[in-house]
Computed example of a mutant assay.
Amino acid sequence: MASHRVMKIYTVSGCFPLIILLMSTMVIQSTQERTDSIFHYTYCAIHQNIQTDEEMGIADLLSSIAGDIQLRQLDLRSLFPAERFPIQIRFNLKNFDISSDAEYSIAIHEFGVIYEGSCALSGERIVVNDGNGSQRTSASLRPDDTGALFMNFIDIGISLTGQESIVGRSLVIHGNGQSDLEVKYNSTRLACCIIGESDGRSW
């Protein structure tokens, strides 16, 4: 923990609270800047997948999922250029359909494209190496009984920096292909978002 010089203040009692407030604000800002500088932040705002029925001339939302996904990673490449630090992922999602036996997963897709509300152009799934010799293309999501998913977890298989950075790619929430709309459009892509750079203020 950084130490802060304590100065003896000679002033009238009426100014003392104001000076203490100013000093506290400076310390908080300094600590915030120091913390933010060692993290790389991204933000991903969820878009519901829209599919168009050309014959009927109507657009269908494949889900009502809403919210955002945030990621951050220690950025100490200048000190440890060969090290890959784990990513902390924060889910803030709601409106999952819990009325059926639906199962959900999330995957990184190669392209960061959402065209006219559709997640169809996000490309194929990216294969992620877990670091223990295994590979995966998706991870399970388990919303609670209210259809919400608020959780943090650590992932060691992906990065926000370097040649394997996932910044600019998309995250896609998949269903299990059992709902009427998933069957109708032959798509399990319920919602998606593009991973973009962030200043970390929303973390």
Rank of each mutant, 00 (worst) to 15 (best):
G157V: 00
I46H: 00
A82M: 07
R5H: 09
F111H: 15
A139S: 13
Y115D: 14
I114C: 00
Q88W: 14
D144R: 08
D199F: 04
I46E: 00
F150C: 12
S159Y: 04
Q163K: 12
S105I: 11
L74P: 02
P17A: 06
C44R: 00
S165F: 08
D75A: 06
I9P: 00
A102M: 06
G112E: 01
C119E: 00
V27S: 14
E124S: 13
F96M: 05
L21I: 13
P143C: 14
D53Y: 08
V172M: 08
Y10V: 12
R5T: 09
D101C: 10
R34M: 10
S138G: 11
I195C: 02
H47D: 00
N92A: 13
H40S: 03
R136G: 12
S64H: 11
A107N: 09
R72Q: 12
G162C: 09
L22D: 13
I195T: 07
I28R: 01
D130T: 10
C192A: 06
I108L: 05
G157K: 04
D144A: 06
M26Y: 13
I58T: 15
F85R: 04
T188W: 01
G117S: 05
G67W: 02
V167A: 04
L79A: 12
K94C: 06
Q73T: 10
C119I: 05
A45Y: 07
I108H: 02
T52P: 01
N92H: 09
G175S: 00
H4G: 06
R136L: 12
L181M: 08
T25A: 03
M151L: 14
M7R: 15
K94V: 14
E103H: 05
L181Q: 02
A102T: 04
Y185D: 09
I87R: 03
D75L: 02
T161M: 11
G133C: 10
I154M: 15
A139E: 15
G133D: 10
Q51S: 06
R77M: 08
G123C: 13
H4W: 11
S100C: 05
E116P: 04
G131N: 13
R189F: 02
C193L: 11
N129F: 09
G133L: 09
I156V: 15
L190R: 04
Q29D: 07
H109Y: 14
F39L: 11
A66P: 05
A120T: 05
S30Q: 08
